[in-house]
Design a protein around this nucleic acid. Structure first.
Length: 325
DNA sequence: AATATGCACAACCGCCTTTTG
DNA sequence: ACAAAAGGCGGTTGTGCATAT
Protein backbone atom coordinates (compact mmCIF):
# COMPACT_ATOMS: atom_id res chain seq x y z
CA UNK A 1 0.00 0.00 0.00
CA UNK A 2 1.25 3.45 -0.77
CA UNK A 3 2.24 5.68 2.09
CA UNK A 4 -0.37 8.33 1.34
CA UNK A 5 -3.13 5.75 1.38
CA UNK A 6 -1.79 4.36 4.60
CA UNK A 7 -1.96 7.70 6.24
CA UNK A 8 -5.64 8.10 5.53
CA UNK A 9 -6.30 5.07 7.67
CA UNK A 10 -4.15 6.24 10.47
CA UNK A 11 -4.98 7.86 13.69
CA UNK A 12 -5.50 11.41 14.72
CA UNK A 13 -2.08 12.30 15.97
CA UNK A 14 -1.99 9.44 18.36
CA UNK A 15 -5.31 10.30 19.85
CA UNK A 16 -7.08 7.17 18.92
CA UNK A 17 -9.61 6.19 21.48
CA UNK A 18 -10.04 2.50 21.77
CA UNK A 19 -13.54 1.03 21.55
CA UNK A 20 -15.19 3.87 23.36
CA UNK A 21 -13.49 3.08 26.62
CA UNK A 22 -11.69 6.38 26.69
CA UNK A 23 -8.30 4.77 26.57
CA UNK A 24 -5.74 6.69 24.62
CA UNK A 25 -3.47 4.96 22.14
CA UNK A 26 -0.63 5.92 19.92
CA UNK A 27 2.59 7.77 20.63
CA UNK A 28 3.23 8.94 24.14
CA UNK A 29 3.51 12.64 24.79
CA UNK A 30 6.28 14.09 26.98
CA UNK A 31 3.61 14.97 29.50
CA UNK A 32 2.43 11.39 29.73
CA UNK A 33 5.99 10.19 30.02
CA UNK A 34 6.57 12.61 32.83
CA UNK A 35 3.49 11.43 34.71
CA UNK A 36 4.35 7.78 34.31
CA UNK A 37 7.97 8.24 35.18
CA UNK A 38 7.31 10.29 38.25
CA UNK A 39 4.61 7.92 39.46
CA UNK A 40 6.71 4.80 39.07
CA UNK A 41 9.75 6.41 40.61
CA UNK A 42 7.71 7.52 43.55
CA UNK A 43 5.47 4.52 44.18
CA UNK A 44 6.72 1.73 41.98
CA UNK A 45 4.41 0.32 39.39
CA UNK A 46 2.52 -2.08 41.63
CA UNK A 47 -0.48 -3.22 39.66
CA UNK A 48 -0.20 -1.97 36.13
CA UNK A 49 -3.94 -2.28 35.80
CA UNK A 50 -4.62 0.33 38.40
CA UNK A 51 -1.61 2.49 37.70
CA UNK A 52 -3.04 4.67 34.92
CA UNK A 53 -5.85 6.02 37.10
CA UNK A 54 -3.53 6.67 40.01
CA UNK A 55 -0.97 8.34 37.78
CA UNK A 56 -3.55 10.41 35.97
CA UNK A 57 -3.07 8.71 32.64
CA UNK A 58 -5.72 7.79 30.13
CA UNK A 59 -3.88 4.72 29.02
CA UNK A 60 -4.38 1.06 29.66
CA UNK A 61 -2.06 -0.62 32.13
CA UNK A 62 -0.54 -2.70 29.44
CA UNK A 63 0.45 0.36 27.46
CA UNK A 64 1.99 1.89 30.57
CA UNK A 65 3.96 -1.23 31.29
CA UNK A 66 5.28 -1.36 27.76
CA UNK A 67 6.21 2.29 27.77
CA UNK A 68 8.04 1.84 31.02
CA UNK A 69 9.88 -1.35 30.18
CA UNK A 70 10.82 -0.37 26.65
CA UNK A 71 11.50 3.30 27.00
CA UNK A 72 11.28 5.04 30.33
CA UNK A 73 13.12 2.63 32.57
CA UNK A 74 16.27 4.41 33.69
CA UNK A 75 18.58 1.47 33.14
CA UNK A 76 17.94 1.18 29.44
CA UNK A 77 20.82 1.46 27.07
CA UNK A 78 19.96 3.08 23.80
CA UNK A 79 21.77 3.67 20.59
CA UNK A 80 23.82 1.54 18.28
CA UNK A 81 24.50 -2.08 19.03
CA UNK A 82 28.15 -2.92 19.41
CA UNK A 83 29.75 -5.72 17.45
CA UNK A 84 29.95 -7.72 20.62
CA UNK A 85 26.26 -7.27 21.21
CA UNK A 86 25.43 -8.23 17.66
CA UNK A 87 27.53 -11.31 17.94
CA UNK A 88 25.78 -12.29 21.13
CA UNK A 89 22.41 -11.76 19.52
CA UNK A 90 23.30 -13.92 16.55
CA UNK A 91 24.67 -16.66 18.73
CA UNK A 92 21.74 -16.68 21.07
CA UNK A 93 19.29 -16.51 18.24
CA UNK A 94 20.86 -19.59 16.74
CA UNK A 95 20.27 -21.37 20.01
CA UNK A 96 17.00 -19.93 21.12
CA UNK A 97 15.22 -18.73 18.02
CA UNK A 98 12.95 -15.75 18.41
CA UNK A 99 12.90 -15.84 22.19
CA UNK A 100 13.68 -12.19 22.42
CA UNK A 101 13.14 -11.78 26.11
CA UNK A 102 15.55 -14.61 26.85
CA UNK A 103 18.08 -13.15 24.46
CA UNK A 104 17.60 -9.75 26.03
CA UNK A 105 18.36 -11.17 29.44
CA UNK A 106 21.91 -11.82 28.24
CA UNK A 107 22.35 -8.32 26.89
CA UNK A 108 22.55 -5.93 29.79
CA UNK A 109 20.26 -2.93 29.57
CA UNK A 110 18.84 -3.86 26.21
CA UNK A 111 15.13 -4.51 25.82
CA UNK A 112 13.65 -7.44 23.99
CA UNK A 113 11.80 -5.05 21.75
CA UNK A 114 14.96 -3.26 20.78
CA UNK A 115 16.76 -6.48 20.06
CA UNK A 116 13.86 -7.78 18.06
CA UNK A 117 13.76 -4.61 16.01
CA UNK A 118 17.48 -4.69 15.47
CA UNK A 119 17.30 -8.27 14.37
CA UNK A 120 14.51 -7.66 11.91
CA UNK A 121 15.88 -4.48 10.44
CA UNK A 122 19.60 -5.19 10.43
CA UNK A 123 20.94 -8.61 11.21
CA UNK A 124 18.29 -10.63 9.45
CA UNK A 125 18.74 -8.69 6.24
CA UNK A 126 22.48 -8.87 6.43
CA UNK A 127 22.40 -12.61 6.87
CA UNK A 128 19.99 -13.00 3.99
CA UNK A 129 22.26 -10.94 1.79
CA UNK A 130 25.13 -13.20 2.67
CA UNK A 131 23.21 -16.28 1.71
CA UNK A 132 22.53 -17.43 5.23
CA UNK A 133 19.07 -18.38 6.29
CA UNK A 134 18.37 -16.20 9.33
CA UNK A 135 16.01 -18.73 10.82
CA UNK A 136 18.14 -21.83 10.58
CA UNK A 137 21.48 -20.00 10.58
CA UNK A 138 22.59 -22.32 7.87
CA UNK A 139 23.88 -21.40 4.46
CA UNK A 140 21.34 -21.44 1.73
CA UNK A 141 21.91 -23.13 -1.62
CA UNK A 142 25.28 -22.44 -3.11
CA UNK A 143 26.93 -21.84 0.21
CA UNK A 144 28.65 -24.82 1.67
CA UNK A 145 29.39 -25.97 5.11
CA UNK A 146 32.36 -28.13 5.51
CA UNK A 147 31.25 -31.70 5.40
CA UNK A 148 33.07 -32.51 8.59
CA UNK A 149 31.17 -29.82 10.29
CA UNK A 150 27.91 -31.10 8.99
CA UNK A 151 28.91 -34.44 10.32
CA UNK A 152 29.45 -32.98 13.76
CA UNK A 153 26.20 -31.15 13.56
CA UNK A 154 24.46 -34.38 12.73
CA UNK A 155 26.17 -36.16 15.59
CA UNK A 156 25.28 -33.46 18.00
CA UNK A 157 21.74 -33.36 16.79
CA UNK A 158 21.46 -37.09 17.23
CA UNK A 159 22.77 -36.83 20.77
CA UNK A 160 20.39 -34.03 21.47
CA UNK A 161 17.39 -35.92 20.20
CA UNK A 162 18.37 -38.99 22.12
CA UNK A 163 18.78 -37.02 25.31
CA UNK A 164 15.52 -35.28 24.80
CA UNK A 165 13.68 -38.51 24.16
CA UNK A 166 15.18 -40.21 27.17
CA UNK A 167 14.56 -37.33 29.47
CA UNK A 168 11.01 -36.94 28.35
CA UNK A 169 10.45 -40.56 29.25
CA UNK A 170 11.58 -39.86 32.80
CA UNK A 171 9.83 -36.69 33.84
CA UNK A 172 9.91 -37.65 37.50
CA UNK A 173 13.62 -37.12 37.55
CA UNK A 174 13.66 -33.42 37.09
CA UNK A 175 12.03 -30.74 39.14
CA UNK A 176 10.48 -28.67 36.41
CA UNK A 177 10.67 -29.48 32.76
CA UNK A 178 13.09 -31.44 30.69
CA UNK A 179 16.00 -29.32 29.67
CA UNK A 180 15.88 -27.49 26.45
CA UNK A 181 18.38 -29.12 24.23
CA UNK A 182 17.93 -26.68 21.48
CA UNK A 183 20.25 -26.59 18.59
CA UNK A 184 20.27 -24.19 15.68
CA UNK A 185 18.12 -26.43 13.59
CA UNK A 186 15.41 -26.80 16.14
CA UNK A 187 14.52 -23.43 17.38
CA UNK A 188 11.32 -22.83 15.49
CA UNK A 189 8.61 -20.63 16.92
CA UNK A 190 6.45 -22.49 19.27
CA UNK A 191 4.01 -20.36 21.06
CA UNK A 192 3.17 -23.00 23.54
CA UNK A 193 5.17 -25.82 24.82
CA UNK A 194 8.86 -25.28 25.18
CA UNK A 195 9.56 -22.31 27.29
CA UNK A 196 13.20 -22.51 28.13
CA UNK A 197 13.38 -23.86 31.59
CA UNK A 198 16.10 -23.04 34.07
CA UNK A 199 17.90 -26.35 33.75
CA UNK A 200 18.37 -25.70 30.08
CA UNK A 201 21.15 -23.25 30.55
CA UNK A 202 24.08 -25.58 30.81
CA UNK A 203 23.44 -26.87 27.37
CA UNK A 204 23.37 -23.35 26.10
CA UNK A 205 26.93 -22.85 27.12
CA UNK A 206 28.05 -26.10 25.69
CA UNK A 207 26.30 -25.30 22.51
CA UNK A 208 27.81 -21.88 22.52
CA UNK A 209 31.16 -23.46 21.95
CA UNK A 210 29.69 -25.73 19.39
CA UNK A 211 28.15 -22.71 17.81
CA UNK A 212 31.47 -20.97 17.69
CA UNK A 213 32.85 -23.96 15.94
CA UNK A 214 30.13 -23.87 13.38
CA UNK A 215 30.34 -20.20 12.69
CA UNK A 216 34.06 -20.10 12.57
CA UNK A 217 33.70 -22.28 9.53
CA UNK A 218 31.18 -20.50 7.47
CA UNK A 219 31.79 -17.01 8.62
CA UNK A 220 28.46 -15.29 8.93
CA UNK A 221 30.09 -11.95 8.92
CA UNK A 222 33.75 -11.28 9.03
CA UNK A 223 33.32 -8.09 10.96
CA UNK A 224 30.85 -9.45 13.42
CA UNK A 225 32.41 -12.76 14.15
CA UNK A 226 36.06 -12.10 13.69
CA UNK A 227 36.35 -11.41 17.35
CA UNK A 228 35.03 -14.84 18.13
CA UNK A 229 37.82 -16.40 16.16
CA UNK A 230 40.48 -14.15 17.59
CA UNK A 231 39.21 -14.76 21.09
CA UNK A 232 39.61 -18.44 20.48
CA UNK A 233 43.22 -17.86 19.57
CA UNK A 234 43.86 -16.75 23.08
CA UNK A 235 43.35 -20.18 24.49
CA UNK A 236 44.88 -22.79 22.30
CA UNK A 237 44.32 -25.70 24.59
CA UNK A 238 41.47 -28.04 24.02
CA UNK A 239 38.58 -26.85 26.10
CA UNK A 240 37.99 -28.94 29.16
CA UNK A 241 34.67 -30.48 29.85
CA UNK A 242 32.76 -27.84 31.73
CA UNK A 243 31.59 -28.30 35.25
CA UNK A 244 28.09 -27.06 35.33
CA UNK A 245 27.53 -24.41 37.87
CA UNK A 246 24.74 -22.20 39.16
CA UNK A 247 21.09 -21.85 38.59
CA UNK A 248 19.25 -19.12 40.36
CA UNK A 249 17.17 -19.69 43.40
CA UNK A 250 14.17 -18.15 41.73
CA UNK A 251 14.48 -20.64 38.94
CA UNK A 252 15.74 -18.06 36.53
CA UNK A 253 18.92 -18.16 34.63
CA UNK A 254 18.36 -14.76 33.13
CA UNK A 255 21.31 -12.99 34.60
CA UNK A 256 23.70 -15.52 33.32
CA UNK A 257 24.97 -18.61 34.98
CA UNK A 258 28.54 -19.66 34.87
CA UNK A 259 30.49 -22.59 33.65
CA UNK A 260 33.69 -23.43 35.40
CA UNK A 261 36.45 -25.03 33.44
CA UNK A 262 38.56 -27.21 35.70
CA UNK A 263 37.76 -24.82 38.52
CA UNK A 264 39.95 -22.22 36.94
CA UNK A 265 38.31 -20.31 34.22
CA UNK A 266 34.85 -19.01 34.67
CA UNK A 267 32.82 -18.25 31.60
CA UNK A 268 29.79 -16.09 31.94
CA UNK A 269 26.88 -16.14 29.59
CA UNK A 270 25.68 -12.78 30.73
CA UNK A 271 25.90 -10.32 33.56
CA UNK A 272 26.29 -11.80 36.95
CA UNK A 273 25.44 -8.97 39.25
CA UNK A 274 22.82 -10.95 41.06
CA UNK A 275 24.88 -13.98 41.88
CA UNK A 276 27.72 -13.05 44.08
CA UNK A 277 28.12 -16.10 46.21
CA UNK A 278 26.98 -19.63 46.41
CA UNK A 279 24.11 -18.76 48.72
CA UNK A 280 22.44 -17.04 45.84
CA UNK A 281 22.17 -20.26 43.96
CA UNK A 282 19.27 -22.48 44.73
CA UNK A 283 21.13 -25.57 43.71
CA UNK A 284 24.24 -26.62 41.99
CA UNK A 285 23.64 -28.41 38.80
CA UNK A 286 24.63 -31.95 39.38
CA UNK A 287 23.71 -31.71 43.01
CA UNK A 288 22.39 -35.19 43.76
CA UNK A 289 20.07 -33.86 46.40
CA UNK A 290 18.09 -31.88 43.94
CA UNK A 291 18.20 -33.66 40.64
CA UNK A 292 19.92 -36.98 40.98
CA UNK A 293 19.59 -39.16 37.95
CA UNK A 294 18.58 -36.39 35.72
CA UNK A 295 21.79 -34.45 35.63
CA UNK A 296 23.96 -37.49 35.69
CA UNK A 297 22.32 -38.80 32.64
CA UNK A 298 22.22 -35.43 31.05
CA UNK A 299 25.87 -34.76 31.56
CA UNK A 300 26.72 -38.19 30.22
CA UNK A 301 24.87 -37.44 27.11
CA UNK A 302 26.44 -34.06 26.78
CA UNK A 303 29.80 -35.62 27.22
CA UNK A 304 29.36 -37.49 23.98
CA UNK A 305 28.57 -34.28 22.21
CA UNK A 306 31.36 -32.48 23.98
CA UNK A 307 33.94 -34.91 22.69
CA UNK A 308 32.81 -34.18 19.20
CA UNK A 309 33.27 -30.54 19.89
CA UNK A 310 36.72 -30.91 21.32
CA UNK A 311 37.77 -33.14 18.48
CA UNK A 312 36.93 -30.39 16.16
CA UNK A 313 38.12 -27.57 18.31
CA UNK A 314 41.14 -26.93 16.19
CA UNK A 315 38.81 -25.63 13.56
CA UNK A 316 37.88 -22.74 15.77
CA UNK A 317 41.46 -21.84 16.23
CA UNK A 318 42.40 -22.12 12.60
CA UNK A 319 39.26 -21.83 10.60
CA UNK A 320 39.51 -22.84 6.99
CA UNK A 321 38.92 -20.29 4.29
CA UNK A 322 35.41 -19.06 4.45
CA UNK A 323 33.13 -20.30 1.68
CA UNK A 324 31.16 -17.10 1.98
CA UNK A 325 32.08 -13.71 0.62
C1' DA B 1 8.74 19.73 -6.15
C1' DA B 2 6.17 15.71 -5.62
C1' DT B 3 6.00 11.08 -4.80
C1' DA B 4 7.82 6.58 -3.70
C1' DT B 5 10.73 3.79 -1.06
C1' DG B 6 13.65 2.42 2.74
C1' DC B 7 14.70 2.46 7.39
C1' DA B 8 14.47 2.63 12.46
C1' DC B 9 11.94 2.07 16.19
C1' DA B 10 7.82 2.88 19.06
C1' DA B 11 3.56 0.93 19.99
C1' DC B 12 -0.24 -2.22 19.64
C1' DC B 13 -2.53 -6.79 19.35
C1' DG B 14 -3.49 -11.38 20.33
C1' DC B 15 -2.18 -15.24 22.56
C1' DC B 16 -0.15 -17.77 26.33
C1' DT B 17 1.35 -18.30 31.11
C1' DT B 18 1.25 -17.18 35.77
C1' DT B 19 -0.92 -15.41 39.72
C1' DT B 20 -4.72 -14.58 42.63
C1' DG B 21 -9.08 -15.18 44.85
C1' DA C 1 -9.69 -27.29 41.36
C1' DC C 2 -11.30 -23.68 38.92
C1' DA C 3 -12.04 -19.11 36.73
C1' DA C 4 -10.73 -14.53 36.15
C1' DA C 5 -7.29 -11.11 36.19
C1' DA C 6 -2.80 -9.64 35.37
C1' DG C 7 1.54 -10.01 33.34
C1' DG C 8 4.62 -11.35 29.67
C1' DC C 9 5.99 -12.48 25.03
C1' DG C 10 6.47 -12.43 20.08
C1' DG C 11 4.50 -10.88 15.75
C1' DT C 12 3.00 -7.11 13.36
C1' DT C 13 1.77 -2.48 12.30
C1' DG C 14 2.22 2.54 12.56
C1' DT C 15 4.90 6.65 12.25
C1' DG C 16 8.34 9.93 11.16
C1' DC C 17 12.38 10.89 8.85
C1' DA C 18 15.88 10.36 5.13
C1' DT C 19 16.91 9.25 0.62
C1' DA C 20 15.94 8.00 -4.14
C1' DT C 21 13.35 8.52 -8.32
Amino acid sequence: MVRSEKKKKQNNNGNIVGLGVGVKKGPWTPEEDRKLLSYVQQFGHGSWRSLPAKAGLKRCGKSCRLRWTNYLRPDIKRGKFSMEEERTIIQLHALLGNRWSTIASHLPRRTDNEIKNHWNSHIKKRMTKMGIDPMTHKPKNGTQLLSSNLNHMAQWEAARLEAEARLVQKPKNHPTQPPCLVSPSIHVHHKTPTKVSPPSLPCLDVLKVWQGNLWANYSINNETLQSLISTSNASVATPPMPVLSHVYNNGSYDQGPTIKHNDEIEIKMGPLEEITHADDADFIIGDPLRSPDFWEEFVDLLDGGWKNITNNYAMIISPPASPVC
